[in-house]
Computed example of a mutant assay.
Amino acid sequence: MQDKDLEALLAQAAKQPPQPSAGLMDRVLADALALQPAGLTVGHPPARAPQPLGVLARLAALFGGAPVLAGVCSAAVAGVALGYLNPESMDMLTGGLAGDVTGAETIDLFPSTDFLATEG
């Protein structure tokens, strides 16, 4: 077979593409329809109701999500700590370090005063 003959044969085959049989198309469409998910009908609720949220999940949703709630709680803890530990109490803790330390004096890092229980 020459190149011209092969070209003519391929050109004739390109003009007449093969068509699938009707039986094949029916089987393919039946398989495709069997794999399709069932749709919801209009007016009916979904099969499963959503699970109710817990108290912490509702609180997190109220603030805008868990990361936002974590930031708000961290700020609240820092605010309570700074409000309770006033600067005078902090001076009692750091006074030995920043005070008049000269020569061979010892530094008492844990003073006997309970600075966290004093009112400021």
Results as ranks from 00 to 15, higher is better:
residue 79 G to T: 01
residue 89 S to M: 09
residue 9 L to F: 03
residue 22 A to C: 01
residue 75 A to Q: 01
residue 60 A to T: 00
residue 19 Q to T: 08
residue 60 A to S: 11
residue 32 A to P: 01
residue 10 L to T: 04
residue 10 L to G: 07
residue 92 M to W: 04
residue 79 G to R: 02
residue 102 T to L: 05
residue 83 G to Y: 03
residue 38 A to R: 08
residue 69 L to W: 01
residue 41 T to S: 10
residue 64 G to N: 02
residue 58 R to C: 08
residue 5 D to H: 14
residue 65 G to L: 06
residue 60 A to Y: 01
residue 12 Q to D: 15
residue 31 D to C: 07
residue 59 L to T: 07
residue 35 L to T: 00
residue 36 Q to E: 11
residue 36 Q to M: 13
residue 101 V to R: 06
residue 47 A to Y: 10
residue 57 A to C: 12
residue 77 V to P: 06
residue 25 M to L: 09
residue 102 T to P: 01
residue 68 V to M: 04
residue 106 T to Y: 10
residue 87 P to T: 11
residue 112 S to E: 12
residue 41 T to I: 13
residue 5 D to L: 14
residue 106 T to C: 07
residue 17 P to E: 05
residue 119 E to G: 08
residue 116 L to G: 05
residue 49 A to W: 05
residue 64 G to V: 02
residue 39 G to M: 08
residue 29 L to V: 10
residue 37 P to N: 10
residue 56 L to A: 14
residue 31 D to A: 14
residue 40 L to H: 12
residue 44 H to K: 14
residue 51 Q to T: 08
residue 64 G to W: 03
residue 117 A to K: 11
residue 46 P to L: 09
residue 28 V to M: 09
residue 79 G to N: 08
residue 47 A to K: 09
residue 118 T to G: 07
residue 45 P to I: 07
residue 71 G to L: 13
residue 93 L to P: 03
residue 20 P to R: 05
residue 101 V to D: 01
residue 23 G to D: 04
residue 46 P to D: 05
residue 119 E to P: 00
residue 94 T to G: 12
residue 65 G to E: 05
residue 70 A to S: 11
residue 26 D to G: 03
residue 94 T to K: 07
residue 28 V to Y: 02
residue 77 V to C: 02
residue 14 A to K: 10
residue 90 M to G: 08
residue 43 G to A: 01
residue 106 T to K: 13
residue 70 A to C: 12
residue 103 G to K: 01
residue 59 L to P: 03
residue 8 A to R: 11
residue 23 G to E: 06
residue 12 Q to L: 13
residue 54 G to P: 01
residue 48 R to C: 11
residue 4 K to S: 15
